[in-house]
């Protein structure tokens, strides 16, 4: 059962990664305008120049 010593931290770490990701989306206002975001991705004036 020594493998548990690795697997438990790994599984908790992956979960924590998901949580951090969620908190980041929340902080960056990604739930503020769901309708707008779904339309914005389809708009024509997509900028193909990389931002510097």
């Amino acid at each position: 059962m020594d493998v548990l010593a690795y697997l438990i931290p790994v599984s908790l770490g992956l979960g924590a990664l998901g949580l951090i990701g969620f908190l980041w989306t929340l902080r960056s206002d990604q739930y503020d305008d769901p309708d707008g975001d779904s339309e914005r991705i389809l708009r024509d004036d997509y900028d193909d120049k990389p931002a510097d």
């Binding site: 305008d33 914005r40 997509y46 900028d47």
Partner: peptide, 23 residues
Amino acid sequence: MSSSDVHIGLSACPGCDATALAT
């Protein structure tokens, strides 16, 4: 409303980032 400030840097959709930055 700080939404616009933060949104410039971080967004789920790269298109909006690029356009917002460019404009």
